[in-house]
Amino acid sequence: MSTTDTRPHGAATTTATTFSSTADLTSALIRAAIAHGQHETRTGAEDPNWPDWYAAYIVAEQAGTELPL
């Protein structure tokens, strides 16, 4: 059986994303929000898929991999 990977571009495949506190998660969400605002400025459009973008950003940031643009 073949499956298609439906994770957002840049999502890590082998590293769990964890936070030790709500403050750590809050900080990650704030950093993602700031970066996403810059992303929308670059593209010149609102991103209706912002939850996927945030998730990909946070996972990549924590894994130390390339962040989405």
Rank of each mutant, 00 (worst) to 15 (best):
I58E: 15
T41I: 04
D5S: 03
I34F: 12
N49R: 08
H39I: 06
W53C: 10
A35T: 05
T3Q: 12
L69S: 14
A28T: 00
P48C: 02
F19N: 00
A23F: 05
S20V: 06
H39M: 12
P68M: 08
A45K: 08
R42G: 14
L67H: 08
Q62I: 15
D24S: 07
T17K: 00
R7C: 07
G37Y: 03
H39Q: 13
A16V: 04
T4C: 06
T6A: 02
G64Y: 03
W50K: 08
N49A: 15
S2G: 08
T14E: 12
P51Q: 11
P51I: 12
A23G: 04
T3E: 15
T13D: 08
H39N: 12
T65W: 13
M1K: 00
R7T: 06
V59F: 14
R31Y: 12
A45S: 14
R7A: 10
R31H: 13
T22P: 07
A55V: 03
W50S: 11
D24R: 00
P48Q: 07
T13M: 01
Q62G: 15
F19S: 00
Q38G: 13
T17A: 05
Y54I: 11
R31P: 05
A12M: 00
D24G: 04
F19R: 00
S21D: 09
E61G: 09
A33W: 01
S21E: 09
P51K: 04
L25M: 06
D5V: 03
E61A: 15
S27Y: 03
T13P: 02
G64N: 04
V59Q: 14
T13F: 01
P8M: 05
R31S: 09
P8N: 01
H9Y: 05
L29Q: 11
T65R: 02
D52A: 09
R7S: 11
G37Q: 06
Y57T: 09
Q62T: 15
T14W: 06
A33M: 00
I58Q: 14
T43A: 15
T26I: 00
S27P: 01
G10R: 02
A35W: 05
T13Q: 05
T15N: 00
F19Q: 02
F19I: 02
E40N: 06
I34G: 10
T26S: 07
A60L: 10
T3H: 13
W50M: 10
A63S: 12
E46A: 13
Q38C: 10
W53Q: 03
I34K: 08
A11W: 01
R42H: 14
Q62S: 15
A11Y: 09
G37V: 03
Y54S: 10
E46R: 05
W53F: 15
D52H: 04
E61L: 14
T15Q: 06
I34H: 08
T13W: 01
E61K: 08
D47P: 03
S27M: 02
D47T: 06
I30T: 10
A11Q: 03
H36D: 09
T14Q: 01
H39R: 13
H36P: 03
G10H: 03
S27T: 11
G64K: 01
T26M: 01
V59L: 14
H9E: 11
P68E: 08
G10V: 07
A33C: 01
P68G: 07
A45E: 13
